[in-house]
Amino acid sequence: MGRTIAVLGYGIQGRAWALNMRDSKLRVIVGVRPGKSFDLAKQEGFEVYSVADAVRRADVIAVLLPDMVQPSVWREEIEPNLKPGATVIFAHGFNIRFGLIKPPANVDVVLIAPKAPGRAVRDEFVKGWGVPALVAVHQDYTGNALKTALAIAKANGFTRVGVIETTFAEETETDLIGEQTVLVGGLMELIRKGFETMVELGYQPEVAYFEVLNEAKLIMDLIWEKGLTGMLLGVSETARYGGLTVGPQVINDDVKKRMKEAAERVRSGEFAKEWVEEYSRGAPRLKELLSSIEKHQIEIVGSELRRMMRG
């Protein structure tokens, strides 16, 4: 590639990208504030600079900082130091989609969003494989924005599996909708309500935990490996019939209607506005909600059972 790439942030995702691209023979530097991440990047052999210095030295800048940290760092350290014609990469489109970051017109702005946590991004690369990713172009100042994005995706192993071209809006909205209605919010509440139902009917909490939480991983593994039909063919006929007949009565069209309402809050920007305001107050509601989960019986029982199973 012949250009200097600055990875901003050396958390799980930033570390994975930096190591992968260095292994792919690209010139990588790291921009991070003093602290544990700064020290770790140094120990692992990278040239480490302040964010501002890294941006000044780089032709390609991968912004791998937390969503809510990005706008202030952008204003103070990134934008004032961008070279004309530089490429700015985001791994999630949140701040561009909702207008919290507005890049100058003389840079390329692209999205490379791996569909896996940072640990998997690194582990699969080391195995000689990769994880899938989404790629998008928001701004193509040089005419080479997509070409650069694909080169960086290739250096991280994403193209070994496949990349899908999308838009910042589609990636951001589907990511938030999926997290809220299925992957985090929906799945967690389904498990919790199933546990509460069994315990309220008089069943042992430990038995309920194994049924609704522990076995959920085994079912998801089957779905991930073989799809919905493959999962159904991998369980008993009794489970198959019960699941197909009762499941739609529990997770019904009323649930789908509420999912669409949640999706509209994302698409309208209402959720983003709420989250930005919550974060600006120090996230008191988030802390309260997290505390209530930590105190829930399923977590107390599960902590003990997981400890016992580890030996």
Rank of each mutant, 00 (worst) to 15 (best):
R160E: 06
V212E: 00
E165R: 15
V212L: 00
T245C: 10
E211F: 01
T229Q: 14
D253S: 13
E200G: 04
I251F: 07
F168A: 12
G242K: 05
E196T: 01
D175A: 06
F271K: 05
G178R: 04
T245L: 12
E206S: 09
G202P: 07
G202A: 08
Q180T: 11
K226F: 12
G194P: 02
T159P: 07
V250Y: 06
R258Q: 13
V250R: 02
L183W: 07
V184K: 08
V266D: 01
K273C: 11
A208L: 03
E270K: 15
V255N: 00
G178Q: 09
E196P: 00
G186V: 07
G162W: 01
D253G: 10
W224M: 11
V207D: 11
S268T: 11
R240M: 12
G243H: 02
K257G: 03
L244C: 14
R267E: 13
G178N: 10
I177P: 04
I177G: 07
V207H: 02
R240H: 14
E200A: 13
E173M: 13
V207Y: 10
N214H: 15
I164P: 07
L201Y: 14
F158V: 04
K256I: 08
Q249Y: 13
G157H: 06
T167F: 06
E225L: 09
V246W: 04
M188S: 14
K257R: 13
E211Y: 08
F210R: 05
F168D: 07
T245Q: 12
V246S: 12
W224A: 13
E189I: 04
K217N: 04
M259P: 03
T174P: 10
T181D: 06
D175Y: 14
L244M: 15
E189C: 01
G157L: 05
I191V: 11
D221T: 06
F271W: 15
I191Y: 04
E225Q: 11
A272M: 08
E237R: 15
G243E: 03
A216P: 03
K257T: 06
F210T: 04
I219P: 09
E225V: 05
N156M: 12
T159D: 13
N156E: 10
R192D: 05
I251A: 13
F271A: 10
Y241M: 11
Q204P: 15
K193D: 07
D253Y: 08
V182K: 05
Q204E: 15
E200N: 13
A239L: 09
E225A: 14
G230Q: 09
G243P: 03
V266S: 00
V182C: 06
R258W: 11
M198H: 01
